[in-house]
Design a protein around this nucleic acid. Structure first.
Lengths: 329, 329
DNA sequence: GTGAAAGCGCTAACAC
DNA sequence: GTGTTAGCGCTTTCAC
């Protein structure tokens, strides 16, 4: 493997000059530049990235922590993050936490070992208290999920508003008995429940704890919920869900059991994934501007990377969220 | 940022000893080991990964080239690749080619610049001729998509068999007029068409070029195909597709137009993604053992990384493929 | 068991 | 414009 030294020798020049050519510095005569290019080509020379990183003290790589890639929400987000990153000469290191606290922590160490220059959370497993000290090692941003105690920039949606809109739509469609499915572990989940409660209370409705499914997220969860619901004597006529997957599972199982959607049960999803439109009936859902979140997040990251002051800003960027009406309500 | 030198000084030892402790070498006295640990802790020392990589001449990182993360086939594959990689202390660098030849080429340069130790293709944009020279820079494996000229290990399915099984099932269900949708640019696509043709010929059927949709892949493609088909006077009664997405699009559009599936049109998908089971009617499809492919691929990569002989083997690992019967046929 | 020293491949003052 | 030189932080012979 050829090194910069080999190129310098073959070109009859110094390493500095070769380095200058590689890095497109001005003040290199055209003649020598050509000499260098010729030598590089002949030797099949490519700069060693580890050496560059060591010397420059940066990696131009950003870690992106996601729970799982198989949750279709995240690939869309990553795609946009990647797009903006590439524009700025940055690379993404995708890290799947599998919702595991220790794994998340081990990825934070990428910052300490200088494997990445910055880090983006799209979901958070550990307490903020645990994460906070890592700020010292490089810029951190929260995107999508958030913690109100966090002292880093946050790019998020107004989840209270999202679920409020959905629930209100259900109420305006005449429903008074409404179930709620969605996580409440995270602050995002708690806020969604808040929005739900707000809409319920405004309408003078009360929610039944029997119709509350806190730890649901997948298609299979949705199926189970439908079964549970229809085993009850007193059951809701509508259900608010925290994801299109849950909603899809509910609808699927409803069909198997001959339950008519939305006549016997209205269902509302969250995300507006491709699946929402494909379901029969098509899913009424809360649309999240995922791409905009990705774009904004990476822009903030780039600006943090370029400013000397690391994590000086703990601004919150809140993006709009809206209801998409289809046929499941 | 503390360096190994700082730790050595504080512990009153040499850099070598600290290094030995970091790397869990034997032959370090317990006493000094504790001294080192104490110093590391006090200084919040973490080894600089770029320095280690430069010195060790390896990155323990594998590039995985995928077309797009938003195609749900790939996240499943990546998840499994990642699982096995982590077991072996390897990191994955996910690279989206966006089906772009130049992007693919630029990712191949990760090998030359020593940013990764090996590279896995899950789809291929360039000619093999273009890719072959990169073998010299590190182990390369093809997983999923393949080129028969390739001289590297290949982990794949028998795509001829897959589409043969699907088409045969259509024929056995009484269909004689069958459309074919799926890419034919790649060898994988060509093989799928081969399997289709084989089943047709065996049954003494001929395919109509009017019913051949070579460049289809998405939900929207599926919708367009259904519309095109039903604008024809002479139309097929069944359609073989190259992905569950196309099939889902066809079914969705069929419903909008009041076309009954499978009575007026039988549809068969490819992949067996979650969506296949959610569609109404549920999709009959070809199941691919995606996880097994991922596992095998990373195992082969690990063995190549550990053997001194790089890319000596150009073996083909062919995994089984099977038909899943549901309600769309 | 431990330390001294060389060097992985590169960049950036600094001098000329 | 170009070369000399001093590291970036680490691992690994080679002595002892």
């Amino acid at each position: 493997m050829a090194t910069i030294e080999d190129v310098a020798k073959l070109a009859g020049l110094s390493r500095s000059t070769v380095s200058r050519v590689i890095n497109h510095h001005p003040y290199v005569s055209e003649k020598k530049k050509q000499l260098v290019y010729a030598a590089m080509k002949q030797l099949e020379y490519y700069p060693n990235s580890s050496a560059q990183r060591l010397r420059r003290q940066k990696t131009d790589t950003i870690a992106v922590l996601v729970p799982r890639l198989t949750n279709p929400f995240f690939p869309v987000l990553i795609e946009e993050l990647d797009l903006v990153a590439v524009e700025h000469g940055l690379q993404l290191l995708i890290c799947q936490t599998q919702q595991n606290e220790e794994k998340e922590l081990s990825f934070l160490n990428l910052l300490k070992t200088k494997q990445v220059d910055g880090l983006i959370f799209t979901a958070i497993e550990n307490d903020w208290e645990t994460i906070a000290p890592y700020k010292e090692w490089g810029p951190i941003i929260l995107c999508n999920e958030y913690k109100s105690e966090a002292t880093v920039p946050i790019v998020r949606l107004n989840q209270v508003k999202g679920s409020y809109l959905g629930t209100k739509h259900l109420i305006e469609s005449g429903h008074t008995k409404i179930a709620f499915c969605g996580g409440t572990e995270s602050e995002l989940g708690i806020d969604r429940k808040k929005g739900f409660m707000k809409a319920m209370e405004e309408a003078g409705l009360i929610m039944s704890e029997d119709w509350f499914f806190p730890s649901s997220y997948s298609i299979d969860c949705g199926k189970d919920i439908l079964k549970t619901l229809f085993a009850m004597k007193n059951r809701p006529t509508a259900v608010f869900t925290g994801s299109d997957e849950i909603a899809a599972g509910i609808i699927k199982e409803a069909k198997s059991l001959g339950v008519s959607i939305p006549d016997e049960l209205a269902v509302i999803g969250f995300d507006d994934q491709p699946i929402a439109e494909l379901m029969e009936p098509a899913l009424t859902t809360i649309q999240q501007p995922v791409k905009d979140m990705g774009k904004k997040t990476m822009e903030v990251m780039v600006s943090m990377l370029n400013s000397d002051i690391v994590n000086d800003q703990d601004q919150i960027y809140e993006l709009p969220i809206r209801l998409v009406k289809r046929q499941s309500v």
